[in-house]
Design a protein around this nucleic acid. Structure first.
Lengths: 199, 199
DNA sequence: AGAAATGATCTACTTTAATATATCGATACA
DNA sequence: TGTATCGATATATTAAAGTAGATCATTTCT
């Protein structure tokens, strides 16, 4: 609406997309209705501080009032911590989240197997490469495989998937060696727990 | 109201007091009614982004959404630029502003005199010592003297006042030598112009 | 004692954010 | 082709922010 709120709207949308969240997912986390999030991100509403705080909290952001003369320094810090993902990265992030969910949704029986645990560990470690991850296709196939594993003959298939995951993780760990080591950890890792925590 | 808004409320009040503004003065600058500012600073209202933006703008503040992990760094920057004044300092700042106003309100005739100009220069330079200035009594007497100068026999009295101002300024300039030189300039200087600028 | 400025509080009225819910067209996938 | 999810919109209702303006008790200075 106003000029000042435009930056806020853009910042919120970018933060959400960088976390691979849909508006409906963010709605669940923040308690703000999806329809309202849409209006906010489109800068079509003069939102209240409580709404902004809810969204910011759900996005691991903090609201700050900074002196104008300190603003450039703050912007540079924020920029360095918020390298926005390219399209392929965002896709990959989304698939990674889906894969974790699919794994979590598996029946308890096979969820305790060694294969499932190494799979979970590898998916979890991939979160450390949120910035560089690009393998959306591989992750999508893995997600689908996980989703269908309960239907097929189970354990054997799960072991293969776990091996695939290990392979992808190793590749990421290798590639990260020749990129800056700090930027790789600059984004907060997605956590599957705390699904609907606050109120 | 909410927990998150408490910091905002406190930050706004501190910023206002550090600038030596009353709620009514800030109201004129920001367009937000004084009664509303009172409620906002008391954290008794869930204010809208537009209100917050208006106040922030009038106080030379900027609203920022920063990643949680960058928050400590940002806080430290903000702290270093926003050393809040102690009570005596705030009083002195208020008197300084009043003195500048009193000088500006002087009739044009004596406003052009050399004494008035050196007085203005010295008052202006005192703004560079916003953090350390404590001489509220001296400044109050000076302000009163300026206010009454138009009634008495004028020019001669004004010259004495200008000398007093010079003396205070020199003392401040001397004391600042043995304090950090950067903190002395860390607060934005008050500017008498731009009285009612925005809308 | 009187005058002036402070922040907090009240009234009355208008505007609008926020919510719950449903739906829309578009895109992606089987 | 049918299913699912995406963001954007529409509706109706409720709760509360925002505004203008007066008033109050305190404090400060004449």
């Amino acid at each position: 609406m106003t000029y000042a709120s435009e930056h806020i709207a853009v910042a919120l949308r970018e933060a959400r997309e960088n976390k691979g969240l849909s508006q409906r997912e963010l709605s669940k986390r923040s308690g703000v209705p999806q329809s309202h999030i849409s209006k906010i991100e489109s800068n079509n509403v003069d939102l209240r501080l409580s709404s902004l705080a809810s969204l910011a909290h759900a996005l691991d952001l903090e609201l700050a009032l900074i002196p104008r003369k300190a603003a450039p320094a703050v912007r540079s810090i924020t920029r360095s911590t918020t390298l926005q993902s390219d399209r392929g990265n965002a896709d990959a992030l989304r698939e990674l989240v889906r894969a974790q969910r699919a794994l979590a949704a598996l029946p308890a029986a096979m969820h305790d197997s060694g294969a499932a645990q190494t799979l979970q560990k590898n998916l979890s470690e991939m979160n450390n490469f949120r910035n560089v991850i690009q393998e959306s296709d591989a992750l999508r196939q893995m997600r689908i495989a996980i989703e269908t594993v309960s239907n097929s003959d189970g354990m054997k298939r799960l072991q293969e998937i776990a091996k695939d995951a290990q392979r992808i993780r190793n590749m990421l760990a290798h590639s990260i060696g020749q990129i800056s080591n700090e930027t790789a950890r600059s984004k907060p890792a997605y956590r599957l727990d705390e699904e609907d925590s606050d109120g």
